[in-house]
Simulated assay, not measured.
Amino acid sequence: MRTRVVVGGALVLLAALSGCAAMPAPTPTLPSRVAVELQQLRSDVAARQVEVHLTNGTDAPLTVGEVRIDDPRFDGPSSRAIADRVSTIPAGGTVDVRVQLAAVDCDAPHDGTATVVLELVGDDGTTEVEASAPDPVGFLAPLHARECLQEQLTQAATVDFTGFSASPPGEPASLELTVTPTGSGSATVTGIERTNLIDFAVPGDDEVYPLDVDVSAGDTEPVVIEVPLVPFRCDPHAVQEDKRGTIFDVEIALDGEPGEIELFVGDELRGRILTWVGQWCGFGG
Protein backbone atom coordinates (compact mmCIF):
# COMPACT_ATOMS: atom_id res chain seq x y z
CA MET A 1 0.00 0.00 0.00
CA ARG A 2 1.34 3.45 -0.88
CA THR A 3 0.84 6.38 1.47
CA ARG A 4 2.11 9.93 1.41
CA VAL A 5 3.16 12.31 4.13
CA VAL A 6 4.72 15.75 4.46
CA VAL A 7 7.82 15.27 6.64
CA GLY A 8 7.73 17.36 9.79
CA GLY A 9 4.14 18.45 9.17
CA ALA A 10 0.86 17.55 10.80
CA LEU A 11 -0.85 16.26 7.65
CA VAL A 12 -2.08 12.68 7.84
CA LEU A 13 -3.85 11.11 4.88
CA LEU A 14 -6.98 9.07 5.58
CA ALA A 15 -7.46 5.77 3.80
CA ALA A 16 -11.05 5.18 2.81
CA LEU A 17 -12.15 1.60 2.26
CA SER A 18 -15.41 0.86 0.49
CA GLY A 19 -18.16 0.06 2.97
CA CYS A 20 -15.96 0.84 5.99
CA ALA A 21 -15.46 3.88 8.14
CA ALA A 22 -12.38 5.97 7.29
CA MET A 23 -9.39 4.95 9.38
CA PRO A 24 -6.16 6.88 9.96
CA ALA A 25 -3.42 5.75 7.58
CA PRO A 26 0.09 4.97 8.79
CA THR A 27 2.35 7.99 8.93
CA PRO A 28 5.69 7.05 7.35
CA THR A 29 8.47 9.60 7.57
CA LEU A 30 11.85 10.04 5.99
CA PRO A 31 14.11 7.83 8.10
CA SER A 32 16.16 9.54 10.75
CA ARG A 33 19.64 10.53 9.56
CA VAL A 34 18.58 10.52 5.90
CA ALA A 35 19.10 13.92 4.25
CA VAL A 36 17.99 15.39 0.92
CA GLU A 37 19.24 18.41 -1.00
CA LEU A 38 19.27 19.69 -4.58
CA GLN A 39 22.40 20.26 -6.64
CA GLN A 40 23.17 21.10 -10.24
CA LEU A 41 26.45 19.93 -11.73
CA ARG A 42 28.04 21.74 -14.65
CA SER A 43 27.27 18.73 -16.84
CA ASP A 44 23.55 19.07 -15.98
CA VAL A 45 23.09 22.64 -17.21
CA ALA A 46 22.68 22.13 -20.95
CA ALA A 47 20.25 19.23 -20.44
CA ARG A 48 18.20 21.15 -17.82
CA GLN A 49 18.72 18.47 -15.20
CA VAL A 50 19.41 18.53 -11.47
CA GLU A 51 20.69 16.07 -8.90
CA VAL A 52 18.70 14.94 -5.88
CA HIS A 53 21.57 14.32 -3.45
CA LEU A 54 20.57 11.65 -0.92
CA THR A 55 22.67 10.92 2.17
CA ASN A 56 21.99 7.75 4.15
CA GLY A 57 23.35 8.19 7.65
CA THR A 58 21.67 5.07 8.98
CA ASP A 59 23.17 1.65 9.64
CA ALA A 60 21.16 -0.08 6.91
CA PRO A 61 20.91 0.34 3.13
CA LEU A 62 18.05 2.42 1.75
CA THR A 63 16.35 1.60 -1.55
CA VAL A 64 14.63 4.40 -3.48
CA GLY A 65 12.39 3.96 -6.51
CA GLU A 66 10.50 6.91 -7.94
CA VAL A 67 12.02 10.33 -7.30
CA ARG A 68 10.38 13.58 -8.28
CA ILE A 69 10.58 17.27 -7.45
CA ASP A 70 7.45 19.33 -6.84
CA ASP A 71 8.03 23.07 -7.19
CA PRO A 72 5.52 25.82 -8.08
CA ARG A 73 8.13 27.43 -10.34
CA PHE A 74 7.77 24.53 -12.77
CA ASP A 75 4.79 23.50 -14.85
CA GLY A 76 4.32 20.09 -13.27
CA PRO A 77 6.49 17.56 -11.44
CA SER A 78 10.11 16.92 -12.45
CA SER A 79 10.91 13.20 -12.54
CA ARG A 80 13.88 10.87 -12.84
CA ALA A 81 15.85 11.40 -16.05
CA ILE A 82 15.89 7.61 -16.44
CA ALA A 83 12.43 6.33 -15.60
CA ASP A 84 11.81 3.21 -13.51
CA ARG A 85 15.34 3.08 -12.13
CA VAL A 86 15.87 1.97 -8.52
CA SER A 87 18.77 3.29 -6.42
CA THR A 88 20.21 1.63 -3.34
CA ILE A 89 22.09 3.89 -0.96
CA PRO A 90 24.50 1.92 1.25
CA ALA A 91 24.66 2.59 4.98
CA GLY A 92 26.69 5.73 5.48
CA GLY A 93 26.73 6.42 1.73
CA THR A 94 25.36 8.94 -0.75
CA VAL A 95 23.65 8.74 -4.13
CA ASP A 96 22.85 11.43 -6.70
CA VAL A 97 19.61 10.83 -8.60
CA ARG A 98 19.42 12.82 -11.83
CA VAL A 99 16.04 14.50 -12.44
CA GLN A 100 14.80 16.13 -15.64
CA LEU A 101 13.29 19.54 -14.94
CA ALA A 102 9.81 20.30 -16.21
CA ALA A 103 9.19 23.51 -18.15
CA VAL A 104 9.20 26.67 -16.07
CA ASP A 105 5.97 28.33 -14.98
CA CYS A 106 6.61 32.04 -15.43
CA ASP A 107 3.46 33.04 -13.55
CA ALA A 108 5.17 31.82 -10.37
CA PRO A 109 7.63 33.99 -8.41
CA HIS A 110 11.33 33.19 -8.66
CA ASP A 111 11.71 32.46 -4.93
CA GLY A 112 9.50 29.38 -4.63
CA THR A 113 10.15 26.32 -2.46
CA ALA A 114 10.89 22.82 -3.72
CA THR A 115 10.00 19.50 -2.16
CA VAL A 116 11.23 16.04 -3.09
CA VAL A 117 8.95 12.99 -3.19
CA LEU A 118 10.71 9.66 -2.66
CA GLU A 119 9.36 6.17 -3.12
CA LEU A 120 11.01 4.03 -0.43
CA VAL A 121 11.16 0.35 -1.33
CA GLY A 122 11.08 -2.26 1.45
CA ASP A 123 10.28 -5.90 2.04
CA ASP A 124 6.62 -5.03 2.70
CA GLY A 125 6.17 -2.91 -0.45
CA THR A 126 6.66 0.77 -1.19
CA THR A 127 6.04 3.90 0.84
CA GLU A 128 5.97 7.44 -0.58
CA VAL A 129 7.33 10.26 1.56
CA GLU A 130 7.74 13.96 0.88
CA ALA A 131 10.63 16.01 2.27
CA SER A 132 11.73 19.59 2.00
CA ALA A 133 14.49 20.03 -0.60
CA PRO A 134 17.14 22.60 0.33
CA ASP A 135 18.94 24.34 -2.53
CA PRO A 136 22.13 25.39 -0.69
CA VAL A 137 23.81 26.99 -3.71
CA GLY A 138 20.62 28.78 -4.72
CA PHE A 139 20.64 27.80 -8.41
CA LEU A 140 16.89 27.28 -8.91
CA ALA A 141 15.78 30.91 -8.57
CA PRO A 142 18.32 32.24 -11.15
CA LEU A 143 17.48 29.34 -13.49
CA HIS A 144 13.78 30.20 -13.28
CA ALA A 145 14.51 33.90 -13.90
CA ARG A 146 16.75 33.21 -16.93
CA GLU A 147 14.36 30.79 -18.57
CA CYS A 148 11.40 33.12 -18.05
CA LEU A 149 13.41 35.97 -19.56
CA GLN A 150 14.17 33.76 -22.55
CA GLU A 151 10.49 32.89 -22.84
CA GLN A 152 9.68 36.60 -22.83
CA LEU A 153 12.35 37.21 -25.47
CA THR A 154 10.81 34.66 -27.83
CA GLN A 155 7.77 36.90 -28.15
CA ALA A 156 10.04 39.32 -30.04
CA ALA A 157 12.73 37.04 -31.53
CA THR A 158 14.44 33.68 -31.35
CA VAL A 159 18.20 33.54 -30.85
CA ASP A 160 20.07 30.42 -31.97
CA PHE A 161 23.53 29.23 -32.92
CA THR A 162 23.11 28.05 -36.49
CA GLY A 163 26.59 27.19 -37.78
CA PHE A 164 30.28 26.87 -37.11
CA SER A 165 33.32 27.12 -39.41
CA ALA A 166 36.58 25.77 -38.04
CA SER A 167 39.92 27.43 -38.72
CA PRO A 168 43.62 26.52 -38.92
CA PRO A 169 45.78 27.10 -35.85
CA GLY A 170 46.45 30.79 -35.28
CA GLU A 171 43.37 31.95 -37.20
CA PRO A 172 39.89 32.68 -35.82
CA ALA A 173 36.99 30.32 -36.34
CA SER A 174 33.46 31.59 -36.94
CA LEU A 175 30.38 30.83 -34.85
CA GLU A 176 27.13 31.79 -36.55
CA LEU A 177 24.44 33.38 -34.38
CA THR A 178 21.02 34.03 -35.91
CA VAL A 179 18.44 36.44 -34.48
CA THR A 180 15.04 35.83 -36.07
CA PRO A 181 12.38 38.47 -35.29
CA THR A 182 8.80 37.31 -34.87
CA GLY A 183 7.32 40.63 -35.97
CA SER A 184 5.37 40.86 -32.72
CA GLY A 185 7.68 42.64 -30.28
CA SER A 186 10.85 44.55 -29.63
CA ALA A 187 14.13 43.61 -27.97
CA THR A 188 17.86 44.21 -28.18
CA VAL A 189 20.50 41.48 -28.26
CA THR A 190 23.39 43.48 -26.90
CA GLY A 191 26.33 41.09 -26.58
CA ILE A 192 27.71 37.63 -25.95
CA GLU A 193 30.13 36.70 -23.16
CA ARG A 194 33.16 34.47 -23.52
CA THR A 195 33.19 31.12 -21.73
CA ASN A 196 35.80 29.28 -19.69
CA LEU A 197 36.94 27.66 -22.97
CA ILE A 198 36.13 30.09 -25.80
CA ASP A 199 37.27 33.69 -26.34
CA PHE A 200 36.70 36.22 -29.11
CA ALA A 201 39.30 37.16 -31.75
CA VAL A 202 39.15 40.88 -31.10
CA PRO A 203 41.77 43.35 -29.81
CA GLY A 204 41.87 43.96 -26.08
CA ASP A 205 40.68 41.87 -23.18
CA ASP A 206 36.94 42.45 -23.32
CA GLU A 207 34.86 39.55 -22.02
CA VAL A 208 31.82 40.60 -24.06
CA TYR A 209 31.58 40.60 -27.85
CA PRO A 210 29.16 43.38 -28.90
CA LEU A 211 26.18 42.41 -31.05
CA ASP A 212 23.80 45.39 -30.77
CA VAL A 213 20.97 43.80 -32.75
CA ASP A 214 17.76 45.80 -32.36
CA VAL A 215 14.47 44.06 -33.10
CA SER A 216 11.28 46.07 -33.56
CA ALA A 217 7.64 45.12 -34.00
CA GLY A 218 7.07 44.33 -37.65
CA ASP A 219 10.60 43.01 -38.26
CA THR A 220 10.77 39.51 -39.73
CA GLU A 221 14.12 39.37 -41.56
CA PRO A 222 16.71 37.17 -39.78
CA VAL A 223 19.95 38.81 -38.72
CA VAL A 224 23.03 36.58 -38.97
CA ILE A 225 26.20 37.47 -37.05
CA GLU A 226 29.55 35.75 -37.55
CA VAL A 227 31.28 35.73 -34.16
CA PRO A 228 35.09 35.25 -34.45
CA LEU A 229 36.38 32.67 -31.97
CA VAL A 230 39.73 31.57 -30.59
CA PRO A 231 40.38 29.16 -27.72
CA PHE A 232 40.53 30.85 -24.32
CA ARG A 233 42.87 28.13 -23.05
CA CYS A 234 44.84 25.27 -24.56
CA ASP A 235 45.38 22.78 -21.75
CA PRO A 236 44.06 19.38 -22.90
CA HIS A 237 42.09 18.62 -19.74
CA ALA A 238 39.99 21.79 -20.31
CA VAL A 239 38.57 20.13 -23.43
CA GLN A 240 38.46 16.59 -22.08
CA GLU A 241 36.58 17.69 -18.96
CA ASP A 242 34.50 20.41 -20.61
CA LYS A 243 31.03 20.93 -19.14
CA ARG A 244 30.14 24.58 -19.86
CA GLY A 245 32.64 25.74 -22.46
CA THR A 246 30.01 25.91 -25.20
CA ILE A 247 27.22 27.47 -23.13
CA PHE A 248 27.29 31.21 -23.71
CA ASP A 249 25.70 33.98 -21.68
CA VAL A 250 23.89 36.30 -24.10
CA GLU A 251 23.10 39.81 -22.90
CA ILE A 252 19.74 41.23 -23.92
CA ALA A 253 17.43 44.11 -23.09
CA LEU A 254 13.62 43.99 -22.93
CA ASP A 255 11.65 47.19 -22.40
CA GLY A 256 14.93 48.88 -21.57
CA GLU A 257 15.72 46.41 -18.78
CA PRO A 258 18.99 44.46 -19.19
CA GLY A 259 19.22 40.74 -18.54
CA GLU A 260 21.01 37.55 -19.56
CA ILE A 261 20.01 34.22 -21.03
CA GLU A 262 22.08 31.06 -21.38
CA LEU A 263 22.46 29.71 -24.91
CA PHE A 264 23.89 26.27 -25.65
CA VAL A 265 25.38 25.62 -29.09
CA GLY A 266 23.77 22.16 -29.20
CA ASP A 267 25.38 18.73 -29.15
CA GLU A 268 26.39 18.68 -32.82
CA LEU A 269 28.12 22.07 -32.81
CA ARG A 270 29.65 21.34 -29.40
CA GLY A 271 31.42 18.28 -30.82
CA ARG A 272 32.75 20.27 -33.76
CA ILE A 273 33.93 23.14 -31.58
CA LEU A 274 35.74 20.86 -29.11
CA THR A 275 37.44 19.05 -32.01
CA TRP A 276 38.53 22.41 -33.44
CA VAL A 277 39.94 23.57 -30.10
CA GLY A 278 42.01 20.38 -29.84
CA GLN A 279 43.38 20.74 -33.36
CA TRP A 280 43.94 24.50 -33.03
CA CYS A 281 45.88 23.92 -29.80
CA GLY A 282 47.90 21.04 -31.23
CA PHE A 283 46.64 18.10 -29.21
CA GLY A 284 43.66 16.97 -31.28
CA GLY A 285 43.64 13.85 -33.39
Results as ranks from 00 to 15, higher is better:
L140M: 15
A145G: 08
G138F: 11
T178M: 09
T162E: 04
V189S: 02
E151K: 14
T162K: 01
T158R: 14
F161Q: 05
P181M: 02
F164T: 13
H144N: 12
T154H: 03
A166G: 15
L153H: 04
G183C: 10
A156K: 08
P172K: 07
R146V: 06
F161V: 07
A145C: 01
D160A: 13
T180Y: 00
V179H: 00
V179W: 02
A187Y: 05
V189Y: 00
Q150K: 15
T180A: 03
T180L: 00
P172D: 08
A145Y: 04
T190W: 01
S186C: 03
A156E: 05
A141V: 07
T190H: 03
A166Y: 12
G138W: 09
E147L: 15
S186M: 01
T158S: 15
G138M: 07
S174C: 10
A156R: 10
P142G: 06
A166C: 08
P142C: 09
A145Q: 15
A156M: 09
E171T: 11
L153R: 02
P172E: 08
S165E: 14
L143C: 00
F161E: 04
E147K: 07
F164I: 13
A173E: 02
F139E: 13
T162S: 09
S174A: 15
G191I: 03
C148A: 03
T188V: 15
Q152H: 11
P142V: 06
G138V: 12
H144G: 13
S184I: 04
T190Q: 06
R146S: 04
Q155F: 08
F139D: 12
P142K: 04
Q155Y: 02
S165I: 07
P169M: 06
A187F: 06
L140S: 06
S174L: 15
L149M: 12
A141D: 14
Q152D: 14
G185A: 08
P169T: 14
G163C: 04
Q150E: 15
A157T: 09
T188P: 00
S174P: 02
P172Q: 09
P142T: 11
P168Y: 12
G191S: 05
T154E: 06
G185T: 05
A141G: 10
T154S: 06
A187C: 09
L175P: 11
F139L: 11
S167K: 14
P142Y: 07
F139T: 09
A173W: 02
